[in-house]
Amino acid sequence: MSLAKLSVSVLAVAAVSATAAVAQSRDNVQVAGSSTVLPYASIVAEAFGENFDFPTPVVESGGSSTGLRRFCEGVGENTIDIANSSRSIRESEIATCAENGVTDIIEVRFGYDGIVFASDINGPSFAFTQSDWYLALAANLPVDGAMVPNPNTSWDQVRADLPAQDIAAYIPGTRHGTREVFDENVILQGCEDSGAMAAMMEMGMDEDAAEEACMELRADGVSTDIDGDYTETLARITANPEGIGVFGLAFYENNTDRLQVATMAGVEPTVANIASGTYPVSRPLFFYIKAAHIGVIPGLKEYASFFVSDDIAGPFGPLAAYGLVADPELAEVQATVANEVTMGGM
């Protein structure tokens, strides 16, 4: 009988405490989103927890799209307060947000991230242009007025100056915000630069169709989509020293003893070159704040202001030390957060 009594009492306790929890309010900031932003956000969260009386925010990763989807699920304590994103929010996502009652969104751009092309430190060094990458990875290339499957298998076939090494590219999967930047700033740009786009339009394609054909990547095993994180890309390159991987600058900076970086269009990916915009493949990093939660979730606004403060996101702060390229217009961003300027109000 005692077992029966025990089980009943345990269930009762569980039920009571579960109802108590619904009444209990959340006192920590809840953040989710881009795995590129995660290391920065966790550095800020850590420092925030150390220096303020608020609890340390909880930061989840999962990708920009996942983060924004959860952000747009609605307003309330069981939804997240901040979505980290390595791309700006899409119109369709704003619409979904609005449908679910998330109308006031504060967009905060806190810095730039360079996307670098790196290979094994013991291999030959590379100096790429965007058209090299397009010619190496496109599914079909226009040849004499017809689209033919990409015949290139080694880099010297793409351009004679490049080392005679088999093409093996590890690029971010479509789940990542990084992929969008790669597609637009590298592949599409390369398609235009190499004259392939003009050739396709001559063949009678309209601009949209040509762009689509440009960004279609080969699926014959030469290029591999990495859906995991940069650590997986690094493991692939360790396993296959001929591979070339796409990394975030911060990741490369942490692994300079194993990777060497390639130049893109003659520009080296340094913090200075990315900040000035001469390095072509970089993108801004964002986080989005649910304005309706400010004042409800303790510490939310303080966390956001702390994130973009000069101590943290400035050129000499810990984020820059980790590999973030500080935003030259940080003062404006700070004002946006301080005045809670929402996206519609801009």
């Binding site: 306790v13 405490s17 209990q24 920590n28 809840q30 989710a32 995660l38 956000a41 966790s42 969260a45 850590e46 927890g49 609890p55 340390t56 909880v58 930061v59 989840e60 990763s61 999962g62």
Partner: peptide, 15 residues
């Protein structure tokens, strides 16, 4: 949401 960066120790049960 448990796959996350959490630094605060949770309180004693049941809270």
């Amino acid at each position: 949401g448990m796959v996350a960066f959490v630094r605060e120790y949770p309180a004693a049960p049941l809270d």
